[in-house]
Design a protein around this nucleic acid. Sequence first.
DNA 1: ATCAGTTCCGTAAACGTTTACGATCCTAGT
DNA 2: ACTAGGATCGTAAACGTTTACGGAACTGAT
Lengths: 338, 338
Amino acid sequence: MKGIRRLAEHLDISIGTVSRALNGKPDVNEETRRRVLEAAEKLGYVANQSGRALRKGATGVIGFMMQTGREITGQGDTFFMSVFDGVQAVLAPHKLDLVALLCSSEEDPDDYLKRMVARGFADGIILSATRRHDPRFEFLARHQIPFVTLGRSLTDVGQPWIDLDFEGMAEQSVERLVGAGHREIGFVWPHGELNLGYVFIGRCRQALARFGLTLSEHNIFRTTPSEMGGYRVAREIKSIERPPTALILVNETLVTGLYRGLEEVGLQPGRDIAIIGRQSPQARFLSPTLTGFDLSLRDLGVALAEGLLSTMPAYAELYPKAARQKLWPMTLIEGESG
Amino acid sequence: MKGIRRLAEHLDISIGTVSRALNGKPDVNEETRRRVLEAAEKLGYVANQSGRALRKGATGVIGFMMQTGREITGQGDTFFMSVFDGVQAVLAPHKLDLVALLCSSEEDPDDYLKRMVARGFADGIILSATRRHDPRFEFLARHQIPFVTLGRSLTDVGQPWIDLDFEGMAEQSVERLVGAGHREIGFVWPHGELNLGYVFIGRCRQALARFGLTLSEHNIFRTTPSEMGGYRVAREIKSIERPPTALILVNETLVTGLYRGLEEVGLQPGRDIAIIGRQSPQARFLSPTLTGFDLSLRDLGVALAEGLLSTMPAYAELYPKAARQKLWPMTLIEGESG
DNA sequence: ATCAGTTCCGTAAACGTTTACGATCCTAGT
DNA sequence: ACTAGGATCGTAAACGTTTACGGAACTGAT
């Protein structure tokens, strides 16, 4: 005898009452409820996931989809860990659990998501690493799966999203560097298909134009979003004839490799070349200190979770629909590098 | 009409046959099977997770438990991302999916695991961040949940485990440093309760003893497993009267902060103080280059998955039981720091 | 023509839970 | 004493699958 049946037998009441007691339904004697709760605690009973989900049509699980391997999203060491913490802070009171849906680097992310959705694995999905054209958006919308994205896409379907304010970062960076006299500014573009690269470069172009400058192709450095990617950029800079005098990094992981590469070719950040990047736990201890944009990852996680819940019928009234699509502000922390 | 019923109706055959066709059972006409598979593909049918799990008593999910927030394990995202990739390579052929069970920093990890197990969330569990005394081991063993651990514990219950060879690292580091003339060696201990700290320090003590040296308490630097933790160690070293001439870091995340801290107090790794640590994507670009231990994370993931499958009745015969408890070798990569 | 054997398929039970429904008991108002 | 209504609980159906079982149709051998 297992599960709720065991508990019911032990208490000599029906399984229906046990279930009602555990789920906080009104029509159960408070004394009985107390006994049930107590017995459940003592016997370590927890409702079986499958049975409950099958009957209720909801799993109580929120999935955060991410891709394993490396050099895909290019997020730093602890980026997601901090975001998760914020997400969970919001989900916990609703008894929702967060799990990371790990898409293998050998499986197509679109297929993977379809599989997970069709299986009915999660009640809601958080998507990251959004691509410029991302079929996952339409798929989830079509199947009416509540979801929120960390990042935008051209295939926006009106779902809530939060994206780092790369536009603001672009404007502010360009303004700062041009103001400091730089005319040849390099932009590191570490993502082939991710949407953020397009957004960032696009706005940089606009910002430069306002100063009568154009962003020439040879100042765009395409590489991989990893330490090695940054390293390669440094080597490349040394090899070209008219190297930029400043560099903007939209990605946070590149900077350690870049610093090392620059050192090897005899360029010192802040003195020989200006660097503006993104703050991170690692970047904090670079020398010379990095000038870069910082943000609160945990709060971002909180906002993501709230956005998701606002699209879930069961929780929607608790979370106002306002500001469901939001650029997440980043603040420039001045260092010695630019 | 949903699910398998829809598919059956569409094909005008019974749901039983559909299920058998999809699950590769022998007693179904090959032509029928072809039609079923085709229709399933066309209609995008995937078996519902809950229904299937409820009936089969198995979910097809492997859970990798980890704790969110930071400064707990001190492992970065990329550490696990690489391990995951190896795990998935083994699981995929068996149609097992890997998900990360994310334990919030606000929930007790032991309670969390109990909850997930009682829910029947996963068929097998991979544990990391094992503590010196880790109740999760006994709990899983008692409930006969197949599991494998990345890391050991005093509460070993005979389950397969893989742990980094901290003993080898200790021996080799001490030998190298003592051979280079160091007598006052500092050991950074960034984990309060994690087992690896005890293992490492214990073996260091032994290794020192063989040279007639003792590990005095003031040469053990306790801190948090984060960049900031490393930074604090550097400051502390400057402030004490007889600072060590060499430092061994068992953890990989500390080193960037330590480097920066040392620079601020005027100590150069490799010249003023010897450093031996762990290699990582970030460490690779430190300057002076780090002398540290490297390992293949992906292969480690492969071994973990194989260890897990060897304890699962359904797969056990495919994976030999031999070498189920294994110290994972690390190789010293010489740099300039020590 | 009969029968054994094989191939294929439909039926229905089972997995563990939630919940609509109805039954029982009690209280209080008449 | 009778009844209305509330409080509390038991019963059974339902969720979507898988699978044991049995039956039908067919094959080939006698």
